[in-house]
Computed example of a mutant assay.
Amino acid sequence: MSSPAVPTAADRRRWARYLVDERAEARVYRELATRRDGEERDILLALAEAEGRHEAHWLELLDGEPERLPHRGFGAVLLAWMARRFGSIFVLALAQNAESRSPYDDEPYATAQMAADEKVHSEVVRGLAARGRRRLSGSFRAAVFGANDGLVSNLALVLGIGATGVAPQFVLFSGIAGLLAGALSMGAGEYVSVRSQRELLDSTEPSSAADAVLPDLDIDANELALVYRARGLTEEEALARAERALRSAHSEDGPHRDRLDAEASDHEVVGGAFAAASSSFLFFASGAIIPVLPWLFGMSGLAAVGLALLMVGLALLATGAAVGLLSGAPPLRRGIRQLAIGFGAAAVTYVLGLVFGVSMG
Rank of each mutant, 00 (worst) to 15 (best):
L19W: 03
D21G: 09
E25L: 13
A26C: 12
R27C: 08
Y29V: 05
L32K: 00
R41N: 00
L47T: 03
G52Q: 12
W58V: 12
G64H: 15
G64E: 13
E67M: 10
R68P: 01
R72A: 15
A76G: 12
A76V: 11
R84H: 00
F86T: 15
I89H: 04
A93T: 07
A95P: 06
N97D: 14
N97E: 12
A98L: 13
D105F: 07
A116M: 00
K119V: 10
K119S: 09
E123C: 09
V124L: 12
G127E: 11
R133V: 13
R135D: 14
V144H: 00
G146C: 05
S153C: 04
L155K: 00
L157N: 01
L159P: 01
L159M: 11
P168T: 14
F170S: 14
V171Q: 05
L172H: 02
S185F: 12
M186E: 05
S193P: 08
Q197R: 13
R198E: 14
T204H: 08
P206R: 05
D211P: 03
D216Y: 06
D218R: 10
E223S: 08
A225L: 10
L226R: 15
A230S: 12
E237A: 15
L239G: 00
A242E: 05
E243N: 08
R244W: 13
G254V: 13
H256S: 12
R259Q: 10
A262L: 00
E263W: 07
A264S: 08
A264P: 02
D266I: 12
H267P: 09
H267D: 09
A276C: 11
L282G: 00
I289M: 07
V292C: 05
M299Y: 11
L310T: 05
L316K: 02
A321C: 12
G324Q: 03
P331R: 05
G335Q: 03
G342R: 01
A345R: 01
A345E: 04
V348S: 11
Y350R: 06
L352G: 07
G353T: 03
V355R: 00
F356W: 06
F356I: 11
G357P: 07
S359F: 15
